Structure formats: structure tokens, C-alpha cells
Amino acid sequence: MKISLAKHGGQAAGILLGRLPQVLDTGTLSPTAAEEISRLVEAARAASPAEDNGPGRARDAMSYTITVEDGDDETVLKCSDANMFPTFAHLLRLLERHLK
């Protein structure tokens, strides 16, 4: 499974502008870590809220796009600091830890 993480906006918008997404191949991880990520991806797919309608009152919020490629299947999960749900937050933290 290949997972990419793109970050947009926020107070670091100028720094992130034009930056390519970070990519993680779960085949490079331990079986335990790969299984945990796979489990969180499935949970985030199931819990994904409706599309956000804009920044609203959190105009400087970061937004995150996680794209999961698993064989011929591709899933795109999007959230921002303003509408992040717990499963997405856990997946995001785990990906950031492995992408360092």
C-alpha cells in the first residue's frame, strides 16, 4: 500500500506552497506498523465526515489530504484542523511519525 500525505494552508501556507506530498510505502514498515496503518485507513474510510464547505471561522486552519493506493483501488481522505475527526487524527499522527 502506498500512502501520500499533502498539507495545505495554515500559518505555514507560504512554506508549504508547491511542496510535493510525502509518500510512505507500507512495504518498508514492520508487519505490525503496516497492519496498524491499514486498520486506521479502513476506520478513517468508514468514519469520514461529509465534505467541508470551506474554512468558515478557522481561516488559518491546516488542511490535510491522505491518498491511499492499494493495488487498483485509490481512496482520498480530506480533513482540516477545523473538522478533524479522531480516527483521521490518529492516522495523521502515525503517518507523520513514519514519514520523518
Rank of each mutant, 00 (worst) to 15 (best):
R45V: 14
V76M: 07
F88V: 05
R93S: 14
H8L: 11
T28K: 11
P55R: 06
H98K: 01
I3H: 00
R39V: 03
K100F: 10
L77V: 06
R57K: 15
K78T: 11
Q11S: 12
L99H: 09
T67R: 14
A44G: 05
H8Y: 13
E74I: 04
Q22A: 12
L92E: 08
D52S: 11
A12T: 06
V68R: 00
A33W: 02
P21L: 07
I66M: 01
A13G: 06
L92S: 06
N83Y: 03
A50P: 00
A6R: 15
L29S: 10
K78S: 11
T87S: 13
E35S: 08
L29N: 05
L91T: 11
T75W: 15
H90K: 13
L91E: 13
D25V: 10
G18A: 05
S63F: 12
L92C: 06
A12K: 09
N83Q: 04
D52Q: 05
A34C: 10
A6C: 06
G27D: 12
A13N: 04
A89D: 15
L94F: 13
L24N: 02
R93T: 12
E42M: 06
L99R: 06
C79W: 15
N53C: 01
R57E: 07
I3Y: 02
M84W: 03
A12M: 15
L17P: 00
F85D: 02
T67G: 00
M1H: 01
E36H: 11
R59N: 08
R45M: 04
I37K: 01
A50N: 07
L29F: 12
A33F: 03
T67V: 11
S30Y: 05
P31R: 15
Q22Y: 04
S48I: 12
R93G: 15
A12I: 15
S38A: 15
K2A: 00
A82L: 08
E96P: 10
E51P: 12
A33V: 03
L95H: 04
L77A: 03
E74F: 00
S4G: 03
L92N: 08
P55Q: 04
R93I: 11
S4A: 06
A46C: 02
Q11M: 08
L99C: 13
P86G: 02
S4I: 05
E51Y: 09
D81A: 10
E96V: 13
P49G: 01
L95S: 04
A12L: 15
S80I: 05
P31G: 14
T32H: 08
A13T: 11
Q22T: 06
A47T: 14
F88E: 06
S80L: 07
A50K: 10
L16N: 13
K78E: 09
A12P: 00
A43H: 13
E42F: 03
A89R: 08
T32Y: 10
D72Q: 07
V23S: 02
R59H: 12
E36P: 00
A13V: 14
T75I: 08
F85M: 02
A47F: 09
H98Y: 07
E69S: 08
P31N: 14
E69C: 07
S38T: 14
E69Y: 04
T65N: 00
S48A: 14
A33N: 09
